[in-house]
């Protein structure tokens, strides 16, 4: 019987940013890429304990579980308590596709008064509160990396990216955070 393998997150131990925008790698979380038609939404929502949003650029949260609208039949479901989302979705009985992407994605928390500016160093979306309020989410682009943005508070974003892009994203965010401090 071998030793239990130890988990190593891609940005483990990193801290960065500026007084205007602090960068913190998020703790490991479980995530699924959830795909389903509209008719499956009520059953999946019940099974997951979070109402899958149907409007673009919106999310729904229940405790530490978040469902992000990414496309008309696509959600990113994140559980910060590392719960078994595959099993939860599987128990819905509805036609869907759930794929575990817990290790594909990693997240960086960007927080502070300059969070918007830091992210806008590489992201072309309008992140002003009017157009991107708390709870808004979107898949978009950040420099040469694809990201998923979720605004968790007026001055805080959760930024998800694929793990191998994380050092690039963290580096560019650091430069943006530095500029946001001026």
């Amino acid at each position: 019987m071998a030793d239990q393998a130890i988990r190593k997150a891609p940005l483990a131990g990193l801290r960065g940013g500026s007084h205007a925008a602090i960068l913190t790698p998020a703790a490991p979380a479980s995530r699924i890429s959830l795909r389903a038609g509209k008719d499956a939404v009520p059953a999946l929502s019940a099974a997951l304990g979070v109402t899958l949003p149907l409007r673009p650029k919106t999310s729904a949260s229940s405790g530490k579980r978040h469902a992000l609208w990414l496309g008309p039949d696509e959600w990113l479901v994140i559980d910060e308590d590392d719960a078994d989302l595959m099993a939860a979705a599987g128990s819905s009985g509805a036609l869907h596709s759930a794929v575990d992407v817990s290790h594909r994605n990693t997240a960086i928390i960007v927080s502070g008064p300059g969070a918007e500016v830091a992210i806008n160093s590489g992201c072309p979306q309008d992140l002003s509160l009017g157009l991107f309020p708390v709870g808004a989410c979107s898949r978009t682009i950040f420099g040469k990396a694809e990201i998923v943005l979720l605004r968790t508070a007026e001055d805080t974003f959760r930024l998800e990216c694929w793990r191998s892009f994380a050092p690039f994203v963290f580096g560019l965010l650091s430069e943006g955070a530095e500029d946001a401090a001026h």
Partner: peptide, 18 residues
């Protein structure tokens, strides 16, 4: 750089996303 209205996102977005 173009702004393109995505009929699914119901919003104009930068060409960079397309």
């Amino acid at each position: 750089m173009l702004l393109i209205y995505c009929p699914y996102c119901e919003e104009e977005r930068s060409e960079l996303e397309f």
